[in-house]
Design a protein around this nucleic acid. Structure first.
Lengths: 113, 113
DNA sequence: GCAAGCTACTTGGTAATACACAGTATCAAG
DNA sequence: CTTGATACTGTGTATTACCAAGTAGCTTGC
């Protein structure tokens, strides 16, 4: 019984959706994203987030610029590209459809033995 | 831009949850499950379902019995084990939490440029 | 000026599942 | 016995979340 493992599998694809959504609200950098994910009870660490951001950048969905920091090293601030905005819209439809499909299946009661 | 690919990723982990739920309602065999998934707009083929059922069996979450068919080869009818019922309960919590987390993030509006 | 601590980011390997698809087996009908 | 339909099997591929060690830049204190 590996619940944690299935939890990891369930996050596949969904993390990308959430990150794109966070970025869609305006320019953010990684630490802000982590904070917001944590606030939403979706615990993600940097070693997960940065590779995902790199992948999104390589796919042309986001772009970034370096910004000097008042305290510490410079930061990458991200925003969506036009392509990324369109992709996010389609992802939203995909997610809604998936939730709806799952709801159609799981809303029927189980037999109580 | 590979929406189909992300759709596949999003189904990881969730398919298992749906299948366990379908099985929880009483004894079913694979074709019934496929029909119900299709009715819910979650298109899955046999080559995906059977390996998943095998995995669930090996994990001790489901068990099956062979039943003669009136037309064609004998069929495997599945039902949940006690362990599987408990796991499904925890998976339900996990799914609800994930949907809630995603909702907390995506319900904040995006900037409309 | 250098060391230590903090912050930001990088990288490569691992684990796991949905999928694709070719294949095997069983049964009924002709 | 062959054919068609149905049920099931098995294996390799593609992909992402994760892990954890590592590097680099900046600030602070000595």
């Amino acid at each position: 019984m590996n619940l944690e493992n299935t939890q990891v599998q369930m996050r596949k694809g969904i993390l990308e959706y959430c990150i794109l959504h966070i970025i869609s609200r305006g320019e953010v950098y990684a630490s802000d994203m982590l904070d917001e994910l944590t606030a939403a009870r979706m615990i993600v660490v940097e070693g997960t987030l940065y590779p995902l951001l790199t992948r999104l950048k390589n796919m042309g969905l986001v772009e970034y610029k370096w910004v000097e920091s008042k305290s510490g090293p410079p930061r990458k601030y991200y925003k969506l590209t036009d392509r990324g905005a369109k992709f996010l819209q389609k992802l939203t439809e995909t997610w809604d459809e998936l939730v709806h499909s799952t709801s159609m299946i799981t809303s029927k009661s189980t037999t109580s033995a």
